[in-house]
Structure formats: C-alpha cells, structure tokens
Amino acid sequence: MELASTAFVNGGDIPGRYTCEGPDLAPPLFWTDLPEATRSLALIVDDPDAPDPAHPQRTWVHWVLYDIPPSAEGLPESASPLPEGARDGLNDWNRTGYGGPCPPIGRHRYFFKLYALDQMLSDQHEPKKAALEKAMQGHVLAQAELVGTYQKQKGQR
C-alpha cells in the first residue's frame, strides 16, 4: 500500500497553502495497492515534534478521518467533498477536519498515516486519535505513511 500527494514528496516541504500561513487547506492525497480484504480506511495526521523539535513534549494531532470507503482513490485538495461515508474524528484543537501545520518554533515533521482496515468503525462518534487507534486494534491489514515538513516563515506569526 502506498500513500502520496501531488502537493509534496515524501520527506519534502509542505507548501504554505496547506498551513496556517496560507488558506490551511488539506493537501490532496492519493493511495494505491490496498489489500483485497480492505473494508475501510482511516487517516491520522500528527506532529511528534510539538512544541519544539529540539525538545518535543507531545504529539499534536492535526487530522483524524475514518470509514473512508476503499473505493475512494484519494482525497481532493481541501478534502472536499469527503468520500461518501467518510467520517471526521477530533483533532487536538478539539474540532473536526484538517488543521494544517503551524509550528511555534523550528521545522516540524508531519506524519500522514493511512490504515487499511478489515471492518468499518461506524460505532465511533468523532473519536480522538487514541480512541480510533484502540478501535483499529486487530483490524489493520496494512499501513502507509507520507511525511512532510514545515517551518514558519521568518518574521511571521
């Protein structure tokens, strides 16, 4: 299984358009080679470098999305419209949807993690990352990862 974006390459810079310094849109994503038994997909985007990559204290969750149908080949820019049936969880701003990179200091890494699951997770209601990961236990068929980096422009907040 592979996860990629037309906006940035694995290990590359995330363009400002997908951050708090731009319109803060979700980047376009696409995936290939799902396992045949896939019944749904889940996506978690997080930053393990918060708040300072030199002294990380926590992982900040930017996006939780689940029950993505395996017939979807990806997500368009801004993730709008979401594939039919896809559901949002809560990020660490305590809201649904994508929240782009906005690091307070230094260059952070952003992990886009896609999971192929052998079931739907419909019994969840706006789960946070930990609850979704718990619900996924024992149901992950495959995982793909895409990493982007971002550092705020100097002199801007």
Rank of each mutant, 00 (worst) to 15 (best):
L82K: 10
Y115E: 02
L25V: 01
H62Q: 13
D24Q: 09
P15H: 13
I68Q: 08
W31D: 14
T96N: 09
D33H: 09
A116Q: 04
E36S: 14
P81S: 04
D52P: 06
C102F: 13
P48R: 03
T32N: 14
M120W: 12
P27G: 11
P56T: 05
P51W: 02
G106K: 05
R109M: 00
H125P: 01
N94H: 15
P27Q: 03
R107W: 01
Q57L: 15
K113Y: 00
Q124R: 08
D24L: 03
P69M: 06
E21N: 13
L90V: 07
W31L: 11
L90Q: 11
F30Q: 15
R107I: 01
F111L: 09
Y110T: 00
E77Y: 06
H125C: 04
P103W: 05
E84S: 11
W31E: 12
Q119H: 09
E21L: 14
Y98P: 13
D88T: 05
K113W: 00
S40M: 11
L29T: 15
L41Y: 12
P15Y: 13
G99T: 06
T96D: 06
E77H: 04
A116N: 06
K113Q: 14
A37I: 01
L75D: 12
A86R: 09
L34E: 13
D49F: 02
L117Q: 03
G106E: 04
L82I: 10
R107G: 02
D88I: 00
S80K: 15
L65D: 06
S80T: 12
E73T: 09
W60N: 04
A72T: 07
E21K: 08
V61Q: 04
T32V: 08
A72Y: 15
H62K: 07
L114R: 05
G22D: 09
E73W: 06
F30G: 10
P48T: 03
A86F: 11
H125D: 14
A26P: 02
T59C: 04
W60I: 00
M120R: 15
L65R: 04
C20K: 14
D67A: 06
P104R: 02
D52I: 10
P27H: 02
R109L: 00
D49I: 01
R39F: 02
D123K: 01
P28N: 14
P104Y: 11
D123A: 03
S78I: 00
R39M: 15
P70Y: 13
V61W: 01
P69A: 01
Q57S: 12
D92Q: 03
R39Q: 15
S71G: 08
L117G: 10
Y98G: 14
D52C: 09
L82E: 11
P28T: 13
H125A: 11
A26S: 14
K113G: 01
A79C: 08
E73H: 07
P76G: 07
E36N: 08
T38R: 01
V45F: 06
D118N: 15
R95M: 08
E73F: 03
R58D: 09
G97I: 00
L121F: 05
V64N: 07
Y18G: 05
A116T: 07
R58K: 12
L117A: 03
P83V: 12
E36G: 14
Q124I: 07
A54K: 10
T96R: 10
